[in-house]
């Protein structure tokens, strides 16, 4: 992992049990807010957002016996900063059920920060069709928005300084036990 700092400055925020509880609560809130779950799609942003979307879908399946659709929504080719960054974001294939007309798409990401990724995700979704509504779920909301975007479902609100780094680790994507840290500079 490229941002791994000296371990002394890493402050633990959530462990596996806390992440489990947060995602289960988000699943319940999604069930409560969306009576028609069959027309709802959980669209994860690669790679941890996609994993979180799968886990929320499993909680919904376990609770409500409904097989909610999931998808993957790539944001790299929809970003507005290509050519201004030295490292080019890795592109992934998007995968969404179509048509999206009349459906609710819930964007799922691990950390909500400036909101630019979410803006790019909304752009990407619109190239697949015109959903009835788009909602947003994030495991961590760390503040410092640069666009008028807010999450509908939040696992944990986490006050941070702009120069701190929030690090999410998931078993499936990172091969290490679930955890969240703040790296203090």
């Amino acid at each position: 992992m490229k941002d791994r700092p000296s371990t002394s400055a890493a402050v633990p925020i959530m462990d596996a049990a806390a992440i489990h509880r947060a995602l289960r609560r988000i699943a319940h809130e999604i069930i409560e807010r969306n009576p028609d779950l069959k027309s709802t799609v959980l669209a994860g942003i690669p790679s941890r957002g996609a994993e979180i979307a799968q886990r929320i879908a499993e909680f919904i399946r376990a609770t409500d016996k409904i097989d909610i659709d999931t998808g993957v929504i790539d944001v790299a080719m929809h970003r507005d900063d290509v050519g201004t960054r030295s490292d080019l974001p890795m592109v992934h294939a998007s995968k969404l059920p179509t048509p999206l007309e009349g459906r609710t798409v819930i964007i799922v990401d691990d950390v909500l920060f400036t909101g630019r990724t979410v803006r790019a995700a909304m752009d990407a979704i619109s190239s697949f069709g015109r959903p009835a509504r788009i909602q947003l779920a994030a495991l961590i909301d760390r503040g410092h928005r640069e666009l008028p975007i807010r999450a509908d479902y939040v696992g944990k609100n986490l006050p941070t300084a702009p120069n701190e780094n929030v690090r999410v680790q998931l078993q499936q994507t990172d091969g290490q036990p679930d955890a969240v840290w703040i790296d203090k500079p």
Binding site: A76, M77, H78, D80, V82, V91, P99, D123, S127, F128
Partner: peptide, 8 residues
Amino acid sequence: REIKKVPA
């Protein structure tokens, strides 16, 4: 995709 164009 329905709209075969990205802003990259």
